[in-house]
Design a binder for these strands. Structure first.
Lengths: 197, 197
DNA sequence: AGAGGATGTGACTGGGTGGTCACACCATTG
DNA sequence: CAATGGTGTGACCACCCAGTCACATCCTCT
């Protein structure tokens, strides 16, 4: 948590600090990110930074929080949709995509955090949260008869999460709406040919 | 490429250098790996290291090569199998798993390399190679009638690759044979219920 | 024995890092 | 006016890094 001094700051200055930090943590994982570069980029003194934050980690976690907060405003729309599971998943991937397109730096920050090896507990916690939501959704979908009940729910979550993560990773290389649809088709229909077709 | 001096070395010493380097590059991504720690761990002088390798990057790429060479001896078995695509993919994932179990440090080295941001071209090259092999296999499988021809081959590769990578990532947390089978079931049958069942 | 080339060595260089601290500044009080 | 306390500052500290180099050591061939 930032110190009170940070929130007393002139908003313009505070914004400059945030922007420079976001840029740094987007371009470098935590360990390689440099406080010296950040203060250079936003034109404040090194010492000032330590009036605002406890240390480098405190600043980092604050920036990561900002990123996930913004992301949540996008993806939460998907889960509040009153539709079948395929529509929800489609929307979820699409909202992730929009977030990455609208806030590429915040997207990178979140990505770097997920890949990081510091503070595994916090990452693991987020993973469990996401898994719970997903599994609840899956249960309903199975009960409604839309989803193949022979599959292992944990394995389904694993597959969807792995694909979603990589899908987002590759947005920078220009994945588009149509491609997302095709990827989802693979997950929906499976690889094996369907006799019914 | 290491210098000739390295290959003239007493094998026992050479092994010590390799082992210490593998350990370091398994525990830290390239940028954070420390030559000072390596030489400390294998008991040779810093200067000696520069008799064996051009620089840190030279050493790193040599170690990465070792890792992939070892991995290839495992996964290549899958592709030489004369079986249907599902058996081959199953075997591919399983061999990746065995490699990670038998050589956890080399597995970590390869993983770190794949996630790294240095030398993107070399990583991209490997990605294209794997994609080519996979797509060729897929073509045959579609022609043979085993695989749903309505799916986009690029999207199929994308999904399988994403899942395979995460599957391997999580081996350390104890994924097992049965779990691999269940994950593959998800990919094979898809999420949507099959009318034929 | 001596010469010469290959190899081993670790103190050192220049540059980076996160974090500190004595001091300067400034606004609000009494 | 003076005093107080929150805020800004950048030189500085201790530490770590990749890479160098003058020198020591060893081996082989003459």
């Amino acid at each position: 948590m930032p110190k009170v001094t940070f929130f007393n700051l002139d908003p313009e200055k505070r914004q400059a600090v945030v922007e420079a930090s976001v840029k740094e943590f987007a371009e470098h994982p935590y360990e390689q990110a440099s406080l010296s570069r950040i203060v250079e980029n936003c034109g404040i003194a090194k010492g000032s930074m330590y009036q605002y934050f406890e240390d480098k980690l405190d600043l980092y976690l604050y920036i990561v929080d900002l990123a996930y907060e913004q992301k949540r405003t996008y993806v939460s729309q998907a889960f509040s949709l009153d539709a079948d599971i395929f529509t929800v998943l489609d929307e979820y991937y699409r909202q992730s995509y929009l977030f990455a397109k609208d806030f590429p730096l915040l997207h990178q920050v979140a990505n770097n955090f997920w890949d990081s090896r510091v503070l595994l507990p916090q990452i693991e916690e987020g993973r469990i949260d996401r898994s719970r939501d997903f599994l609840k959704f899956l249960e309903v979908a199975i009960a409604s008869g839309a989803v193949n009940p022979n599959l292992d729910p944990q394995a389904v979550f694993f597959v969807y999460h792995a694909v979603g993560k990589d899908l987002v990773d590759h947005f920078e290389q220009g994945a588009n709406d149509e491609y997302i649809g095709q990827v989802l088709d693979v997950l929906r229909y499976g690889l094996q040919v369907r006799k019914e077709d």
